[in-house]
Structure formats: C-alpha cells, structure tokens
Write a protein that binds this DNA or RNA. Structure first.
Lengths: 219, 219
DNA sequence: CAGATATTTTGCACGTCCTGCATTTTTGCG
DNA sequence: CGCAAAAATGCAGGACGTGCAAAATATCTG
C-alpha cells in the first residue's frame, strides 16, 4: 500500500466513491427541482439507495451534500504556487494556479450549471460553499507568506491574507458574473478581466465599457 | 408615526430592542465561555428570561443570535456611496463609506473582542456572518453600478460586482488580521493599509516589510 | 475455499433545532 | 377602565445530527 490515492482504488474504495457520488448527485438533482430546503436527508438517501444513517457517514450535514468539496484542489493550487519561479509577482502566480484548476468549470459545464441553479434558489448554500473555501484560503495565505520568505511561526501579516482572500473573491465573482450572463462568453475571459482589474488597482472603468479589461493603465 | 426609527421608539419598541439585545448579549457571553455549539437555545433564552419559543421570534436560527446583523449599516453605506461627489474613484468612495461605519469596532472594542473569541472557537459562525453580508454585497454592487451610470434593468457587469466584493473582503481580512495580532495596532491602520494594497494593484511588498502600506508605487 | 479481521452499513434511541397554531399576557390608547 | 393590536408562551410535530451496537460486506491469511 504505497499510495492509496494512486493506481489501486480497490473494490472497497471504489464503492465508497460510488456511494458518495450517488448521494451528491441525487442531492443536486433533487435540489435543482424542488429547492434545496425541501429535500430531506431521507429523500436523498432513498434516491441513492442507502439509509439516512449512511448519509451522515459521508456528509457532516444536510447542506454538505450539495457542495462538492474537494480537498485535492486546494493542495494542487498550493503546490503550484510553491513551485512557481521566484520573482514572479504573487498575483500573477495565483492567477495562473487558479486558471489551471478552473478548466473543469468549462468542461463539465452542465453539472456546474445545475449547481448554479441550486445556488440561485438558496444563496444560503453558496455561503456554506464559500465557507468551505475559507480554511483553504488561510492555508493559501500561509503558502504565499512562505513564498515571500517569512519564517514558520511568525504571524501571517496583512498582505498574504489579503492576496489570498481577494484572489478567491475574484474567482467567486467571476463565477457569479459568468452565471448571470447568458453564457455566451467564455469563463476564461471573465476570469482574465477580473484579475486585470485587480492588477491595475481597481480603477474606475471608462463609462460605456461593458466587459473589457480595465483601461490600459498598466506598465 | 412619521418615522419609527427616529425620536419615538415607544415603550413597546424599546422593550423589543431590549429583549433582542438581552438575547444577543446572553448568547455571546455564554458562547465565549462554553463555545457556541455547546450553548443551547434554551440556555440563551433562559439567561435572557424568555421562553425558547420567543427566541425564535427574534432570530431565525440558533446561530443568528451570535451574529449581530444590522440592516441599517448596509443602508447607511449605500447612501454614503450614492451621495459621494461624482468623479471620485469608486474604491476611494467605498473606503471612506466603510471607514465611517467601522468606528464602532474600535469604540465598542470589548464586545467585538468577545465576538472574535467566539468566532475563533467556531469558524462555522464566521461563515454565517459572512453570508449575511453577501446580500448586502449584491446591493452594494447595484449601487456602484448606478453610480457608474448604468440603467436599472441592465446586467450588473463585472466591475461593480468585483469592487463591492473585494472591498468587503478587504474588511473581513482587516478584521481577521487585527484580531490575530495582539491589538496594539489601531484597526484604522490595518484598514488603511489593506485599501492601499488594493489601490496599488496588490503588487508584492518588499521583503522584510511587516505591516506598512505597500511600497510607494502610487502616482 | 474457510475462517479471521477490518471496514462499512444499518437500525435505534436520543437530544436539539425550528415551525405552525391556539392561547394567554402585555402594551398602547381613548 | 376597557378594548384592540402586538408580543410571549405552550405544545405538537417534523427534520437534523450523533453515539452505540449489531449485521453485512470486503480484505487478508493459511
């Protein structure tokens, strides 16, 4: 058993993933139809073919079933940040690290659209989702602080916290804006514009500019 | 009854406020001691001298008792933004609007410190608190969009969403950083530095700079 | 393959959260 | 005081979430 994450899922592990996926899937589908609040744990469990007790073996709360939290993503992002060539501005590093990860949003566009519908109907869940990313945000801030050459035990400092949090916020807003628009725009474009705004100090856009990058105040 | 918010609270209104305050106060105090999760609604209600049923007449959920949500704050901020002289950069307007509101944090420093302790012990609540501000964030984005001269029904656009969200994030991070530090620094300083970072495009700080504003890249 | 072992699923009981409804108490006012 | 509006309360009930022990299932060993 070298690495349980690679190459050897094993029958057991596969069944667990399947059960979890079945629960999450049932949850999202039922919620998209009836609204998350009106979908009981029993309904989800029943649709997934397990007992309600088993549901709580996989998710800590009713709401967690709709969230699709993946700890791997955070790890990958932090590693990317850590391995980025020194000297590169932190904001650019973050932009690229996230960008690599967010291809999934455009690829599995359909399931994300479903989740967007669920979130629109009960914003309370979006909040939970955000909250799930808060721990990640702190760890990301740690990674940034290390990258900027700060000792281990030292307090974080304002800047690392701020870039990590603001970058995460930029992503959330990008997703929101992308969902609000009829998705005729590529997500990558919204994402790029958002980070361009950040990099240029959030100066006011010229009146009339609908979606372009901020005015060329850069360099 | 010209305006129920001004000058004529009335005995009734005063009792309501008192009850609500008593509940919120009891909640925070008990939570600071035993942890929010271990404080039942019954305990809070009992400490405030009302029935558990009455608790739910004042707060929609157990957690809401610890949050101290004030819809007035959002309204005031939006009005400040709306009445700010035209031509001023949006980011500066937001900075000033929030700054005016945040004096309360330093004045009633003691109760905020208590709340910070509660939040440290159960971050789950901080998330709820954040969520409460999300609706505000959207309305703030609307206000910003209007200020930038955008029609009513039009979609929001990326920039208004982004500034509103990022500004709110900056505040949250400022509070976090300010709480993490032994509060020998004035909150206003952390707050100012955060917005300076935003205004200068979040460029990397020079190594060794602990807390100052970003390097004078401005102008 | 059979049996031992580890893991997962499940049922059950229990406490807490939260809501709707009817009833009682309090408040404001003529 | 007496009355109408508002608030507080008690109660019933559904849903959430957890600990525990028993049953079912997967993995390992000989």
């Amino acid at each position: 058993m070298q690495n349980k994450d690679d190459a050897a899922p094993g029958l057991r592990e596969r069944k667990k993933r399947a059960t979890r996926a079945a629960l999450a899937d049932a949850a999202v589908r039922l919620a998209a139809e009836h609204g998350a609040e009106n979908v009981t744990v029993e309904a989800i469990s029943s649709a997934a073919g397990v007992s309600t007790r088993t549901f709580f073996n996989y998710f800590d709360s009713h709401d967690d079933a709709f969230l699709m939290i993946d700890a791997e993503v955070g790890k990958r992002i932090r590693r990317t940040v850590r391995e980025a060539p020194a000297g590169l501005p932190v904001l650019d590093v973050l932009r690229q690290a996230f960008s690599a990860e967010l291809m999934d949003v455009e690829e599995r566009h359909e399931i994300w659209s479903l989740r967007a519908k669920v979130f629109q109907r009960s914003p309370h869940l979006l909040v939970r989702g955000l909250g799930a990313h808060m721990a990640e945000e702190l760890e990301l801030a740690e990674t940034v602080a290390e990258r900027l050459g700060r000792a281990e035990g030292e307090p974080l400092g304002l800047y690392p916290r701020l870039v990590a949090a603001v970058a995460a916020t930029a992503i959330r807003v990008s997703v929101e804006e992308w969902c609000a628009r009829t998705p005729d725009v590529a997500f990558a474009v919204v994402f790029r514009d958002a980070f361009d705004h950040l990099a240029s100090g959030l100066h006011d856009p010229p009146p009339g500019a609908r979606s372009g990058p901020p005015t060329g105040t850069d360099s």
